[in-house]
Amino acid sequence: MIEPEVSTIKPQPADKNKIWKIWWVAIILGVVTAAEFFVALQFPESWKDFKIFLFIGMTFIKAGYIVMEFMHLGHEQKSLMWTILLPTAFVVWLLGALFIQADAIYLAIYG
């Protein structure tokens, strides 16, 4: 059993700018999520494709802030950043390949 001990290390003071920047990113994420709600519930149903386009756009804005700021990837070495980001191209390929397939299956059943 490890006994809790009294810390002898004096923490460095917090950098106010850094803390403020973290909350600033949080506010952006919150506002974008709120905007997604607004689009989902207030925009007319007939704008379906436009709504989907907006949802995907806003999702990538949020993903960008989470990965680049919260996960700090934007501040790592550029080579590390690309090592992580480039393999996601395989996801785009899978998306394309399987959606073409799905279209063909739909046509074969209902077309």
Binding site: Q12, K18, W23
Partner: peptide, 20 residues
């Protein structure tokens, strides 16, 4: 999202050796 924000703040506190 909020719990992600508090996590960033924990990491930031860790950089400053701020145990509390």
């Amino acid at each position: 999202i909020l719990s992600s924000v508090t996590m960033v703040l924990a990491v930031e506190a860790g950089h400053r050796m701020d145990r509390q």
